[in-house]
Simulated assay, not measured.
Amino acid sequence: MTQGLRERKRAATAQALAEAAFGLAKERGLDGFVIDEVAELAGYSRRTFANHYPCKEAAVASVAYAGIEAAADALEDVSDGRPLLDAVEVVLRLQLTTAGLSRMREVLALARAHPSLEPHVYHVQHRMRLEVEERVAAVAAGRYPASYLTLLVGAVYGMVSTALEGLVDVRLPGDPPSRDAVEFDEFLTEVFNHLRTGF
């Protein structure tokens, strides 16, 4: 399911626009810039922006989607005989890089300050989960019921979202030291231990 050249170019354009929108939102706040400035900063026209995003909020939220395709493609290299939970762990650890996690936290912080961004953030998170669920289903190759796949991927992403939303005190590399915080890698290990052995 590796992308062709046309799809890669389209994805690169969308990502450049998302990066520009995200940078402007961090610098000026969500209300401090317009779509024309996003397009100009990224080196594209307003029409190109409109071909990718319906509004600047969608572009800002989409910055968190970077790397999902590469991470999901990693599932294609997971052997068919590998336990499904192990396959999910492989792709999740690739999807949730330190840079990606930090960016997701920044987008969530922007969404708390600008409620109009929230539905777009949830949409991106939903896309990420569905993308992995689709790839996991291909790896599972009929060995598990469809409902099991949905519940498994949903449980993993639900647990991880507690860290991204600040409901669990998780420290990312580069965060200031905290006595009570758990390192993110340890948190993921705990998540998958719970899923393997129960709560």
Results as ranks from 00 to 15, higher is better:
7 E>T: 12
7 E>S: 10
9 K>P: 03
11 A>C: 14
12 A>G: 06
13 T>C: 06
16 A>D: 03
20 A>C: 13
23 G>V: 08
24 L>F: 05
25 A>I: 08
26 K>I: 15
29 G>Q: 03
30 L>K: 10
31 D>R: 06
31 D>M: 04
32 G>N: 02
38 V>P: 13
43 G>Q: 15
47 R>S: 09
48 T>E: 14
49 F>H: 14
49 F>M: 05
53 Y>A: 11
54 P>K: 13
54 P>L: 12
55 C>W: 15
55 C>P: 07
57 E>Y: 15
58 A>W: 14
59 A>Q: 12
59 A>R: 11
63 V>K: 15
63 V>R: 10
68 I>K: 13
74 A>K: 05
75 L>C: 00
75 L>R: 00
76 E>H: 13
78 V>T: 07
80 D>C: 07
81 G>A: 14
82 R>H: 14
85 L>E: 04
86 D>L: 10
86 D>Q: 12
88 V>T: 14
89 E>L: 11
90 V>A: 02
92 L>D: 06
93 R>D: 12
96 L>Y: 11
102 S>F: 09
103 R>F: 09
103 R>E: 15
106 E>R: 13
108 L>G: 01
115 P>R: 03
119 P>L: 00
120 H>N: 00
123 H>S: 11
123 H>M: 14
124 V>R: 01
125 Q>M: 07
129 R>W: 01
133 E>C: 04
133 E>A: 10
138 A>R: 08
147 S>A: 10
149 L>T: 00
151 L>F: 06
151 L>S: 09
162 T>D: 09
163 A>E: 05
163 A>Y: 01
170 V>N: 01
171 R>N: 00
175 D>P: 02
178 S>D: 06
178 S>G: 01
178 S>M: 01
182 V>D: 00
183 E>M: 08
185 D>P: 08
187 F>W: 12
189 T>H: 04
190 E>D: 12
193 N>D: 11
194 H>T: 12
197 T>N: 14
